[in-house]
């Protein structure tokens, strides 16, 4: 099967979520993915993007965050690069799902969802950049 690839850049502004949605929707349509799969890919990207925008930068300057999504042989690979502070989502702690409502923490949910929805989450710090690579077998997305 031919490789399908989508590359784009977003500024570190929440208003860019509309662009993210359109890009993912277009790509999912091109691959013939169901609406549910489109939403899940969108969710993973939104969680990572908002984390970078909210916690990645100590200045107010504009930064570019790069996304590349590749579909090949039934497998989806998402690559995200940012020049924010070093952060490895794969190491971040996840919420305790077994605890009572009173003990349930508000944070950490985004990372938990990413780990549950993706097969692999690989992180590398390359020079001044965070490089995150996520993989998912598309047949069970």
């Amino acid at each position: 099967m031919a490789e399908n690839r989508l590359s784009f850049e977003l500024k570190n502004r929440l208003s860019e979520l509309d662009t993210l949605e359109k890009k993912v929707h277009g790509f999912a349509g091109q691959l013939g993915l169901a609406e549910k799969s489109n939403c899940k890919i969108n969710l993973v990207l939104e969680e990572l993007f908002t984390n970078i925008v909210s916690y990645g930068y100590s200045d107010d300057s504009e930064h570019q965050i790069q996304f590349t999504i590749t579909h090949e042989n039934g497998s989806l690979t998402i690559r995200i690069e940012d020049d924010g502070i070093p952060f490895n989502p794969a190491d971040a702690s996840c919420p305790d799902l077994e605890c009572t409502l009173e003990e349930r923490k508000i944070g950490g949910l985004g990372i938990h969802l990413i780990k549950k929805l993706m097969d692999d989450v690989l992180y590398q710090r390359c020079g001044e950049k965070n490089v995150l690579i996520l993989k998912k077998d598309i047949s069970d997305l």
């Binding site: 609406e35 908002t50 409502l101 009173e102 349930r104 508000i106 949910l109 985004g110 969802l113």
Partner: peptide
Amino acid sequence: LDYISSAGLRVILKATKNLK
């Protein structure tokens, strides 16, 4: 509702705790 992310879940969790 077509889509929700953790930001939406957080509002639901906060409201649930408050109402309880």
